[in-house]
Design a protein around this nucleic acid. Structure first.
Lengths: 285, 285
DNA sequence: CGGTCATTCTCACAAGGCGAGAACCGAAGT
DNA sequence: ACTTCGGTTCTCGCCTTGTGAGAATGACCG
């Protein structure tokens, strides 16, 4: 039972005896040792200060020699570091390099980053830039500041609550009906707050409003106390390839949404132009 | 010869024939499959847009089925994503999560982050916070802005040119002689620019000056056109556990170094106090 | 010098990774 | 509808290589 969360990743080999049948029920993907390596990374990442070899062995319940073998490999490749004086293993700097590459691949051209910075200061609000990537919707760039914090769970990366965010609504509104249906079928419409739109009919109506107004509104549908506005970024063909958004607290929202909407549309247009300029032709959906 | 850089990682199995003896000459660290998984990640990371399975197979020269097996595992663990519509594989969001954990582990308490932000704006310069981690010197936090760019290669993470940076000199000055000798033996004193201190004697003299003045100065020793100032952060026992620094362009440096030095000392003291407050007792060297 | 603890080594076993080839699948092309 | 083609998955023996108990090494503490 100990560490079931982690060892569960393997699906076999725990209770090493296990005599029973346990036929081919394991829909497990191969590369057991690779999976273990990543499970180890996760285990180390989970602790604020890193783990000792013994702790890792316990967490993943593997024998110590195996843990050391993995550790050696991971340290050598700089995905882990060995803090010798405290005999602890912690995450290595290679992971930072990989994250930097990830950011490069998700790709916010510097011109767009500048525009978002401008949006942040002129709009006096946390600013977001979201795009399609594969069949996901991802937040590619965020600009916030201590004074204007972003909505915390809405940082860089994959986002699966498109129906409850302004940028998500923009991108959904731009998808063709089939894709949208597939997308929504995969993600469902979980009710994040009491205000979250959670039926397909309501969502389609909302998306119609978005298409008409050219602006997406989200009122405490993702987080109570925060509301967002978003505008579409279009490629040369007029397809929606991205979205620019800001988040405001509920009070600000009522006072400033009109002005913000103008600013957003302006920014979104400029971003579109910037994208067309940098031949980084953004993938259509 | 193709892709030698990557395949070289394995050290075997390239030219698949290879008949010869090929005894136990490989001082290779174990876990071949794990190494391959990470080599694959690197290969994918290297390309701006990600790679197709076939391209990966070519880059690593492995047979296709093996590549697909690895890909499946990595996609499943979210370290890669499969961009189906372009049949490409690119880096996944798990890498961002790992990097976030790395930042947590390197650990800049938010109080310190605030102080650095303040240093950045009051000093009108890019600000750095560096600490010991294991037997490395790492930049734990950087605050810069379009107006006051950091020195580009000096971002978050492991830094191996301590002798050519202000924060490096501070931390070196605080190490005990034995550790310092070991550290310098490992890293050497590469001449990054014409001004880099590159003999042990000169460096020791410089470190004496640092200890006397309580400030480290670096004048275009790391990058022509940029100079830095650094001050020590001490723990309750008075040991140097970190360093606060700023970079300036050469012109600014001459005009403003006196004022900046005062500001730096002040910030470093406050950081020290903040660290003592948050019981995140920083590891001594 | 007798503990404990972290790390590495040894070695025989067999799990599991390997790779050629074929099969499958969906998307054009004709 | 038939074919072609590229991408992806499956099959199936071979044998590399990962495995784990246990012992050895070595640093450090008392």
């Amino acid at each position: 039972m100990v560490g079931a969360g982690l060892t569960g990743l393997f699906g076999v080999g725990l209770t090493t005896g296990e005599d029973g049948v346990m036929g081919r029920n394991d829909a497990l993907t191969g590369m057991a040792s690779v999976q273990k390596a990543f499970a180890l990374l996760d285990a180390v990442a989970a602790d604020e200060r890193g783990l000792s070899a013994k702790e890792i062995a316990a967490a993943l319940n593997m024998p110590l020699p195996s843990v050391y073998r993995l550790l050696k490999t991971l340290v050598e490749s700089r995905h882990l570091v060995h803090l010798k004086e405290e005999s602890r293993y912690a995450l290595g700097y290679k992971l930072h390099a990989l994250d930097a590459s990830l950011h490069r691949q998700v790709g916010t051209p510097s011109a767009v980053a500048r525009l978002m910075l401008e949006l942040h200061s002129r709009g006096d609000a946390a600013a977001y830039y979201a795009v399609h990537r594969g069949d996901h919707i991802v937040v590619a760039h965020v600009v916030d500041s201590p004074a204007r914090r972003r909505i915390t769970p809405m940082g860089f990366g994959f986002n699966d609550a498109a129906h409850a965010t302004a940028f998500g609504k923009i991108l959904l509104a731009g998808m063709d009906p089939v894709q949208r249906r597939v997308f929504l079928a995969r993600h469902g419409l979980p009710a994040i707050t009491d205000n979250t739109i959670s039926t397909l009919e309501d969502l389609e109506l909302e998306l119609d409003r978005v298409r008409e107004g050219g602006i997406a509104v989200e009122r405490e549908e993702f987080m109570i106390g925060s509301s967002c506005l978003g505008a579409p970024v279009r490629n040369a063909a007029g397809q929606i390839v991205g979205s620019v958004a800001v988040s405001l607290n509920a009070a600000d929202f009522d006072q400033r949404s009109a002005k913000i909407a103008v600013l957003l549309r302006d920014t979104a247009d400029k971003v579109g132009r910037a994208l067309r300029a940098t031949s980084v032709l953004p993938q259509r959906q």
